[in-house]
Structure formats: structure tokens, C-alpha cells
């Protein structure tokens, strides 16, 4: 994989968003295979997170059933867990204190504005995976303004609450890395300075 640079093309970014969405799917050997982990670790290593990368490799190696360990952790973090569901991956949970609140509707109408609708079997519109997929599509469309607006008004406000919850609570280094990767790619646009249109 080529090193990341400031000159990443929209297509690169589209690919990254898509890859991150993939990382957040329920672990299944169908896609979470050797090829996936190769790509995953290549990205992690490129970003220089070698210590964390080793931690994940060790966790996978030393687990008697690495797939089940990831599935259990995913369930606990994102679906229904004990002691409690740690971090439901839906924007509305953080912004409306409810599933499918007004914030989810706002997200959906933003998709529509950009010409996208939800697939019939999709999860809720404000699910992290779908928001990443949408960002991937915007990046592919080279709609930088739309991407930035979405990140600022609809993504970051909840993601910055979600990310530390996972980071602090997870028992698996893989998910700590995934949420940090997402954090990195979704806040990158702003690192050059003050956003004038930040409302």
C-alpha cells in the first residue's frame, strides 16, 4: 500500500471509508479472512502504529477461537452486552438519547439531499457503518464540501462521544484500533486549521 499523503485522491479516501465500514461489520470468516487482516495490518503499519499492531496480532494468535472472541466483543460493545451495551453505533443514541430519533431523520435527509437512499435490508440510517459508506460515496463523487459538512454537522458530534467509550471499554485491541482509525480519517480534513463555516 502506498504511504498516506496530503495528496490522497478522492478515490483513495473513498476506499479508506469503505474499508473502515468493512472493519465495523459483525465479524464473519467470510470476509474477515487472511486477506482482510493483511490489508488491515498493512494500513496499521503504514500509519506507524507498530506497538498496537503487535498487540492485535498477539490477541488473535493467543485466543483459542479468535473469531468467536471478536464476535463476543462486537456483541458486547455494539449489540446487547453485559454489564451493558457499551457503545451502540447509532448517532441518535448520543444525540437524542433514543434509537431512531430526530438526529437519525436528519442524517437520512442529508443522504437524500445527496441523492442516496437506504437499501431495504440496511440497518438504521445513522449506523456507523452506513455513515462511513455514505462518506465513501461522497468521496467517490468528489463532493468535498458535502463530505466536510456531513462530518462536521452529523458525524463528529456523536462520533467523538462514541469513540472514547469504545476505546476505554473494549477488551479487544482490534476494536480500539478500528475506532481510532475512523477517528483519524474523519478528523483529518480539519487538521489544517479553523473551519470558517463551523456553526
Amino acid at each position: 500500500m502506498p504511504p498516506m499523503s496530503e495528496t490522497s485522491t478522492p478515490q483513495d479516501l473513498s476506499f479508506f471509508y469503505g474499508f473502515l465500514a468493512r472493519c465495523m461489520q459483525y465479524p464473519d470468516p467470510q470476509w474477515m479472512n487472511e486477506e482482510f487482516f493483511q490489508a488491515f495490518f498493512s494500513l496499521v503499519d503504514t500509519l506507524g502504529a507498530t506497538v498496537e499492531g503487535k498487540e492485535i496480532r498477539d490477541a488473535l494468535k493467543h485466543s483459542p477461537d479468535p473469531m468467536e472472541a471478536l464476535q463476543i466483543e462486537y456483541t458486547r460493545l455494539f449489540i446487547n452486552g453485559a454489564p451493558h451495551v457499551v457503545a451502540p453505533p447509532y448517532a441518535s443514541v448520543y444525540m437524542d438519547k433514543s434509537l431512531q430519533g430526530a438526529f437519525a431523520l436528519k442524517t437520512l435527509s442529508f443522504y437524500r439531499e445527496k441523492g442516496y437512499v437506504m437499501e431495504k435490508d440496511a440497518d438504521l440510517p445513522d449506523h456507523l457503518i452506513h455513515e462511513l459508506e455514505f462518506l465513501s460515496l461522497l468521496a467517490r463523487d468528489n463532493d468535498l464540501a458535502g463530505e466536510e459538512e456531513f462530518l462536521t454537522t452529523l458525524f463528529r458530534p456523536w462520533y467523538q462521544q462514541f469513540c472514547p467509550r469504545v476505546g476505554q471499554e473494549t477488551r479487544h485491541p482490534y476494536y480500539r484500533m478500528v475506532v481510532n482509525l475512523i477517528d483519524f480519517f474523519t478528523s483529518e480534513e480539519k487538521k489544517d486549521g479553523f473551519q470558517c463555516n463551523e456553526a
Binding site: E68, I79, A82, H84
Partner: peptide, 20 residues
């Protein structure tokens, strides 16, 4: 948000569940 969403299997102990 706490509602049950998917089938879950307890891979821990009964009464002290570990859900998958």
C-alpha cells in the same frame, strides 16, 4: 436502544451470560 436486536447465544455461564 437496549431492545434485543439479533439472536444471541450465551457462550458463558447460565446467569452470567457472555453473549454472541
Amino acid at each position: 436502544v437496549d431492545r434485543l436486536k439479533y439472536p444471541l447465544k450465551n457462550v458463558g455461564k447460565r446467569g452470567e451470560p457472555v453473549w454472541k
